[in-house]
Amino acid sequence: MRPLLAVLPLLALSLAVAQSDEDPAQPLRECGGTAALGLPAGVQPGLYRGTLAGKTILLQLLASRPSQAESDPADRYAYGVHGIDITLNRGRSAAGGLLLAEFKRDYPKLNATGCFELTGAAGKLSGSWRAPGSQKRYPVIFSPVKLAAEPLSLPATPGLLALRARDPFMFLKLNHPWKAAGSAVTEPLSQVSYPRVAGGSAALNAALQDQQLSLAAQLLDCISLDLAFTGHADGGADANSNDQLNFTDAKLTLKSAQLLSVYNSSYLYCGGAHPNFVGEGRTYDLSSGQVVPLAGKPSSIWPALTPAALQKLYLARYPRTGDAECKDAVRMNDTPDADSFQLYLTRSGLTLAPAFLPHVDTACGEEVTLPYADLRAYAAANGRYFRDLYPR
């Protein structure tokens, strides 16, 4: 249940080690060219938009590449209909233009699956895409994207503006109208849904959009890593299996007079040996949209509910019918910290979702709900939200 942003660097490191025997020039040779790290004359780095076989695509060319190792940032493109990054290795065509080769892994081989041959003029890129060994060429023309002039298709929240500055490529993929249905909004590419509050404050719904934006971006990044590592956007799952990989589910667990609590869970396969389960609980102030700390902090609802107290209460309510090995696994958290549990509110009480278990023991992570009455002694009686949960 670690945040995905903490998981991705570990995955990138494992991928780099596993792929050290690969030859990044191989797909470029299969496309009829050679490897080269720089850009040819007339080709400028940046973001481009164009069409390929009638479908809109986004292209990102880096200013420089220190190497074409998997661990280094790469040129990439994505179809607007699915938003999944396709990694490109860079080189020169036989004619001296820019050659970009996409590929599929058959470790240690990198087999080319597509070849862009491009030249630059007047800021634009023109050329073709073809499959290796095929004589059929699809014409492409890329125009530079002027990011500052790109209209916003979503409310201008802090998270959206920060994403535009930090990761313009992801911003362009997610900056489109999202689908509202009932009390939730769905981002179409990732299919991540997140609640909204009708008539809620602008600050609250901005915070909800920004959390959904983060979840959608993380999921698309994970699927892109999965594609780069396995050659599939589903971890290579059996088509006849009912297992669904790479999805995020968010549920509204409590709405009171002042608070809104949401728990999102993600099942993610980003490449590597195992999938990851990532969970996160967030409780928002309905007026300000600020995240409200629930336990262990001076300004929280239950400041006396320390990590050690949470662990003790969790063990006391852990299902007695649980497997003996699971009980041993949850007892191993003998030095609990603030990240040991994800917390969220429900009608019944405060729910603890364990975040301390290693991957092999994830199935032991039973959620436990502590009734509000049992937690009254830990609460700040003069706190802002006390009467919300303890009306009498």
Rank of each mutant, 00 (worst) to 15 (best):
S288T: 15
A353R: 15
A198V: 08
G296C: 04
Q342Y: 10
V185P: 00
S287I: 04
D337W: 10
P27S: 13
H274K: 15
E22W: 03
A316G: 00
R76G: 00
T119Y: 07
K109S: 12
A233Y: 06
A41Y: 05
K104H: 06
A379V: 00
E150K: 07
A78V: 07
P391R: 09
S190F: 01
F247D: 08
A18I: 04
G127C: 12
A355E: 04
V197T: 09
L268N: 05
E102M: 03
Y107I: 03
V262H: 00
A304E: 11
Q311Y: 10
A304L: 13
E366R: 11
F277W: 06
F356C: 13
S193D: 09
P73V: 06
Q191I: 03
L8F: 15
G349A: 08
F171Q: 05
Y372Q: 06
S265H: 12
C364I: 05
A198Y: 08
E325L: 12
S143P: 01
S340A: 14
A308S: 07
A181M: 08
W178I: 12
E70S: 12
A95Y: 02
A363S: 15
Q244M: 12
A165D: 08
R137I: 10
D374C: 04
L61D: 07
A122N: 10
P293G: 13
P354F: 05
P151W: 02
A338E: 14
P108R: 11
P24A: 05
D285T: 06
S256K: 05
A316N: 11
F142L: 10
A380N: 11
Y79K: 08
Q311E: 13
G322C: 12
L213H: 15
A355D: 04
L189F: 09
R282I: 07
A63F: 00
Q290A: 15
D337S: 14
Y107D: 06
Q19G: 09
Q26P: 04
L8Y: 08
A207I: 00
D106P: 07
V278Q: 07
S201Y: 05
A78K: 06
L62H: 13
P66M: 06
F169I: 02
Y390Q: 08
R65E: 12
T34G: 06
Y284C: 00
M1V: 12
Y344R: 06
